[in-house]
Design a binder for these strands. Structure first.
Lengths: 419, 419
DNA sequence: TTGGGGAGCCAATACGTTTCTGCATGATTG
DNA sequence: CAATCATGCAGAAACGTATTGGCTCCCCAA
């Protein structure tokens, strides 16, 4: 009955729409169907189509399903640009990768970034967002050409201009790694580097190391700085003279050279921790050149996410920063911030007058969060949220006590998880 | 003089604009500055602002610089969403990664994807586009929520529904890897896998191999299929009985097991080619377990982009697919397609009527293209462009002829480029 | 009979650009 | 001196959607 009447209007309404659009509706030969076309075809108004497809408004199920079927038949897909313009939400999150050298920002020089990006993409997708990869260089050309709901910055430099610009535009920014300087991010996620390094040095000392060396980078990023400081602090505490080499992290060859230098020193260490992913193989190769047996003459640990250290000769103990969990956590944090901020600005008009209305939005309620730094009081100005994630030491043969003699056919060592 | 007069109108124009916007212009307290605000502040129309900032229209330099300075002062950034809606170009390119298992699509299981994505991002950026990572699953939720100018699909499955949907929407799609089935992509880029495998097997045979084995995947992707076929063809040609093991590529442990199986066979090969990145270390470990010396008892080559094989013991010869060049080429191809298509549709209205007017748009004029499969005749329907890229065999100790006896302190072998 | 109210739907507006068209004004030419 | 032209700019119409505030029925109670 209602259906009948409503759909009897079809021709009129459709005709009106067609007229209002002028006679160039014949150019719709190969153009994508818009919401207007669906409305005309279904014999309803644009409003009704929008409501039917988005589950809003007061519509009987018959109308809803009818509109949906027409939309399906026409292959209608809402224009993302128009929706973004109207709603202010793009569903896009920027992922900023730091540019080590110049042009080709090293994004996967080490497996860390790749795994982190993978997990971040997956986590964003699960909440309906997509990820866009962007360079940290100040090419604001690209930055301002894509509508971002928020941004993740990996290891931001002190006083990062890109971050400042984003914040000025009101775009939420969270960082992977503690922000240096006074970078005004909304929050960050990082490992407990101090605890990781101390734990790992204790492990080496427990395996018999008397002088532990460090192979580190000359960079100023937070990871390098915190790890080096933790190493120096540990040395001071146990009364060991620090012995370390540094090299510019972005040059792959420099790592091998530095590893060689470290083992060539007169005060050669009997255990080494390498801060970067390729250091393990570099150190292994250097040890072979000097005739040092691992772990008999040299204990080895390196920070890596790569699986190759499970089957090197010998397998190398690695410290995993768990980039997957970091990437996931940083995305959760960012999306929470985005949605809280949206809810806050939606409730703002009422907030100035009386009660805050039915603000029943889920606001970071029961996440799988471990220990937050701060719980925010409500939608509004959140203090900086900081979240510290644990690391994992994967102990393999290269850092085991020097006991058993090695046979030719040694057992396969399964990757034992520790700590 | 002109300046003086023009800017004397400021107050009038500004007032008019303010009125036209109603009295709610006070809500502009914390809102981002729009083009209207710039126009009002500079005392010109929004048309002039747009023209001045985009380098269009007929404006004296004085006006241009004045508008620019005002825009800078207000911190004006054009809304990407509005611009996209108006122009139809978003500056965003989708990069589809194939989901091996279920949820967590393995994006960097192997260094190939990571390097390819890095190069693609870099190439896109250089031409003013950004990259968005998207899953190949048919979650069209996310797909239709982001405005894409085009999409790169990595190794599309036969009859991929996502690709079909994108093409139906008129979005250009190019693929990395030959598309299976009748996937209607606009073009593709791939290695010459046949030539790569044949060249590599010849190299092994030249180093003295009598029976070459293959460690392959059970997947149906084009890479695996073409490589396996090339191997079988080569075996048939030289009259060798094929000997190979396959395993599901997405399971990392399965690789080690399959490597073990291959060397445990009664018809054990004296040389092995591993199709996937981790196969090198897996085979090395398996060889150690069976007391086989490399390269004396077993020659080894694997397909990998990882640098670790330069410093394994011994260093392993690798086949590089040059993912960086692939990623760059595939992006160039896609952007060429996007911009050609845009130019074509811009010239279309005149084409049906009379002369084409002043259609002096640049239409894929002189690109840096190497050897295309086809040169397109003009803007319009391009045939499928297919581009084949060379591979690189990096010869290291693991596949060298068995001549010299190994000393304890062997020379560092520089990564020699071949072919 | 009549007024209230709810169910079902629609017109109009705003989002912030870009671009087409066109109106003045002064300079240049026949 | 009249006609033309180039210059500098402004008005207004899109682009395709979401949303606000109705408007029209019809039903039921008073």
């Amino acid at each position: 009955m209602l259906r009948g009447r409503a759909y009897d209007q079809v021709d009129m309404t459709a005709a009106k729409h067609q007229v209002s659009r002028g006679e160039d509706s014949r150019r719709s030969r190969a153009a994508r169907a818009g919401i207007r076309d669906v409305a005309a075809e279904a014999g309803v108004s644009i409003t009704t189509v929008s409501d039917a497809l988005n589950g809003k408004g007061r519509l009987p199920d018959t109308t809803r399903s009818h509109v949906r079927s027409v939309a399906d038949r026409l292959g209608y897909r809402p224009s993302a640009a128009a929706r973004t313009l109207r709603t202010g939400k793009s569903g896009l999150i920027g992922l900023t990768v730091t540019t080590y050298g110049e042009e080709p920002f090293t994004f996967t020089e080490f497996a860390y970034f790749a795994e982190m990006a993978r997990a971040a993409t997956s986590a964003a997708l699960a909440r309906g967002y997509a990820l866009a990869i962007l360079p940290a260089t100040s090419q604001h050309d690209v930055w301002s050409n894509v509508a971002l709901d928020g941004t993740v910055v990996i290891d931001p430099a002190d006083h990062d201009p890109v971050v400042a610009e984003l914040v000025r535009q009101g775009i939420p920014v969270v960082s992977d790694g503690r922000p240096g300087g006074d970078v005004p991010v909304a929050g960050w996620v990082d490992n407990d580097h101090e605890a990781a390094v101390v734990g790992l040095l204790d492990h080496l000392a427990g395996s018999g190391a008397r002088r532990i060396g460090l192979l580190a980078g000359a960079g100023t990023d937070t990871y390098t700085r915190l790890s080096t400081e933790a190493y120096l602090g540990w040395c001071a505490r146990v009364g060991q003279q620090p012995v370390y080499e540094t090299y510019p992290a972005h040059d792959p060859c420099a790592g091998a050279v530095a590893a060689d230098r470290l083992l060539a020193r007169p005060d050669r260490p009997d255990a080494v921790y390498g801060l970067y992913d390729p250091n393990g193989t570099d150190l292994l190769a250097a040890a072979r050149r000097y005739g040092l047996r691992v772990p008999e003459d040299l204990l080895l640990v390196c920070c890596s996410e790569s699986g190759v250290y499970a089957s090197t000769e010998p397998p190398v103990t690695t410290l995993s920063l768990q980039p997957g969990r970091i990437g996931s956590a940083v995305i959760q944090l960012l999306i929470d911030t985005i949605e809280d901020r949206a809810a806050a600005s939606a409730a703002r008009p009422a907030a100035v007058g009386g009660r805050s209305g039915g603000g029943s939005r889920r606001a970071g309620a029961g996440h799988l969060a471990g220990h937050h730094g701060t719980a925010h009081p409500g939608p509004g100005v959140r203090p900086m949220v900081q979240r510290v994630m644990p690391t994992e030491l994967i102990v393999r043969a290269s850092s085991q006590p020097r006991v058993r003699a090695t046979t030719v056919n040694q057992q396969r060592t399964p990757p034992a998880a520790d700590r």
